[in-house]
Amino acid sequence: MKKRNNILKLTDLIFVLITVASFTGVLIPAGKFTPKLMGAPYTAWMGVVFCFAYILLAYIASKYQKEGPDDN
């Protein structure tokens, strides 16, 4: 139970960090579109990376989040 809560706290913390980074030059550098990846501008491919980071984080959280009688 304690381990589960700690993991969820960690995923929440990472969620907050990624979210903060989403609104900074890490994801949206003003006026910059390099480095490119397979020809795609920086914000486009990094945006895809961020999306999958969120989904992966959600997947990890879903493994540890238990709520309700149908959770075992």
Partner: peptide
């Protein structure tokens, strides 16, 4: 332009995390 991706796709990915953490409760 390309910033539209952040506006919708990244926000939707955030939604997924909240759906797990808050939606289940």
């Amino acid at each position: 332009g390309i910033g539209s991706w952040i506006f919708l796709a990244v926000a939707d990915a955030m939604l997924v995390y909240l759906l797990i953490r808050v939606g289940m409760v």
